[in-house]
């Protein structure tokens, strides 16, 4: 899910001389024995690089994800909903911070990672480039987007890299409330007035396909997948996760009385799974490239915050230095 952009620039970098066959084999043996790799352990340069990209994209997604939901805090329709949404958005900031912290153990600084996000060089999950235009979008995001994220994150709790796995355990504990609050919003809407039901149906139609795209293209088209699976950075294939998500979510939509925006959706008795329609991968690649409804806005917002906050960060540094000088004197 957080490796959506990894296959794009197919640059073959020269093999790292430190990656000798003996070391690679010893490392793979540790992975196969389900040992956890910790920050000071030797690791192949490819393992380190892939993890840095995947984890930083994950962290960026949490941070950018605060924006579409933050959009509705001031207009939440009840005090309880306002409180819940604030708690959720706070959690997301927290998740971003846990994952940045874990990424830094690989030898990069958060400043550099954030600079890559702000310059547009680093990717984040495409789903957050869609706008939240009604209150029902908040329910739908919790239900579908957090639902998809949970599906991806649970296997990552068993990822081979210790700090990432541990961050995922924390994240998963906090994430279950996120999905439940979203579904609860949908329940209220679907039991409500005609306008509310219409709001819910409209949101589902706009978010369903982007949610399916969150899992990324089929692994058959991805070079990185096989290596990531071997290194236990990725535990379950994109297609498998996506199928699981559909199987679990369609009954939830039926319970709400909502119509799925997919005419090809049908339950296959033989396989026990839902068959679903073709995803418009064109839209996916466009959004990933920067041509989604909110890409520009999301980055502009974070850049503005960063620029306008520069004097604050500098002041904090200056004060700390003054304090250190005073104490030394």
């Amino acid at each position: 899910m957080y490796t959506q952009g990894l296959d794009q620039k197919q640059k073959k970098s020269a093999a790292d001389p430190a990656d000798t066959p003996e070391r690679l084999a010893a490392f793979q043996a540790r992975i196969d024995a389900d040992e956890k790799i910790e920050p000071k352990d030797w690791m192949p340069s490819g393992y380190r690089k892939t993890l840095i990209r995947q984890m930083s994209q994950h962290a960026h997604s949490e941070i950018v994800g605060m924006l579409p939901e933050g959009n509705w805090i001031s207009r939440a329709p009840t005090l309880r909903r306002k409180a819940i949404l604030l708690a959720k958005v706070q959690d997301e900031a927290g998740h971003g911070l846990y994952i940045y912290g874990a990424t830094e153990t690989l030898g990069v600084s958060r400043d550099d990672l954030v600079a890559d996000l702000l310059s547009g060089k680093a990717k984040y999950s495409s789903i957050f480039n869609y706008p939240t235009v009604t209150w029902a979008d908040i329910g739908t995001i919790g239900w579908l987007v957090d639902g998809a994220a949970i599906m991806n994150q649970i296997p990552l709790c068993r990822c081979s890299y210790g700090p990432y796995a541990r961050a995922m355990v924390r994240v998963c504990k906090e994430e279950s409330f996120h999905q439940r609050q979203g579904y609860e919003i949908m329940l209220e809407l679907c039991r409500g007035t005609d306008e509310q039901k219409r709001m819910a149906q409209d949101a589902l139609e706009r978010w369903w396909w982007p949610a399916l795209m969150m899992f990324g293209p089929s692994d058959k088209t991805s070079e990185h997948s096989a290596q990531s699976m071997a290194w236990k950075i990725k535990r379950i294939s994109n297609d498998e996760l996506r199928q699981k998500f559909v199987d679990v979510t369609v009954p939830q939509a039926e319970y709400l009385g909502l119509r799925m925006p997919d005419e090809d959706l049908v339950f296959d008795q033989k396989t026990g799974h839902y068959r679903f329609g073709e995803i418009d991968w064109q839209e996916f690649w466009e959004v990933l490239k920067g041509n989604g409804k909110c890409n520009r806005e999301r980055l502009e917002t974070r850049n503005r915050a960063h620029d306008e906050g520069r004097w604050v960060r500098q002041a904090a540094r200056a004060y700390a230095e003054k304090q250190a000088a005073r104490q030394a004197a």
Binding site: E104, L106, G107, S109, D111
Partner: peptide, 9 residues
């Protein structure tokens, strides 16, 4: 007795 991880700063 090195740093606990290779943070650039």
């Amino acid at each position: 007795a090195d740093k606990i991880y290779r943070h650039p700063t």
